[in-house]
Amino acid sequence: MTGAERRRSRWVGGMALACGLSLMLSACGGDSAAPSAGDGEAGGDAKIGVVIKGLDNPFFQHMEDGIEAAAEDSGVEYTIQAAASITDTSGQADKLSNLANQDYDCYVVNPISGTNLVQGIAQIAAKDKTIVNIDNPVEAEAAKAADATIATYIGTDNLAAGKMVADQLATLAPEGGDVATVGGVAGDVTSAQRIDGFKEGLSQDFTVVQEVAADWNRQEAQTQAETILRANPELAAFFVANDDMAMGVARAVAAADRKGETLVVSVDGIDGVASGDIDAAVAQYPFVVGKMGMQACEAAAAGHELPAKVDTPIELITPENAKEAQEAFPEPPSDYENPFADLLEG
């Protein structure tokens, strides 16, 4: 299974609701994510504090894997703390504030929102330590208010991923036609960016006839796709915002006997492409995001100047390279630019 953001955003909806219900009980989730201190050997010369989002979904599990893998490579000393869940904004802020009071040389942060970590960031900035921002960007305004400079931002570009899917669709169906998009929870940022990127990249031969929200849920996506196919029997393609929903849409297409005629393209979905259910996908690599974040800190500690913004690779997955991509996972199948690794080696 590709490192899907699948559950990340699904849980935004699900957990938000569960939290809403349980507000009167207690804050959502508990402080279950215990810090796991990596007792690094003498290899690294920086001490790194890491605060990431909740480990309640595979996307961030892969990110954590990347962080651990990088630390193991260099033997750097680090502490990683995760939010209790995807909605635990204040808990995450407390965790960063705690770490900020301790003696780390560099901090890697993945804030749940653009602003929730601003207090901790201000503390760190006051001590003049390096801040590396991964995945979800700290809002520029918030950083300014905290009088902080973000040394570098490393993330995956959802707009670009959507665009790349659109380009591939143009290749697969040069004659164009009607398309429908299936997003996550209505209003979700990740989903909206992917769909916006897709629509931006869509050639003029295509018309978006329908946009639905399927809550990152396979069953829901399948039901919606079935209905859309009935309203638009000649649909040329579905763009689906993650792999899991794409599998549901693929089933709807097969049930309507439109396989091969109505294409299914998605963000993430290496396994779906490999199995032939999805026609093309663009994969993102949270593992690489985590790894690069650690390497950025190490490079900064070694006195290197960091690039302001680094996009982690996204990879077009077609039936031709799907097998290869599956084997290479969680790394991309082909080489990619890693400026931090270059700095460390150079």
Partner: peptide, 19 residues
């Protein structure tokens, strides 16, 4: 019926069903 419908057993929250 859910598993039969989507062809897989998903640990999804399915909040819409509850509401």
């Amino acid at each position: 019926l859910l598993v039969a419908r989507v062809g897989s057993a998903e640990p999804a929250a399915n909040m819409t069903f509850l509401l």
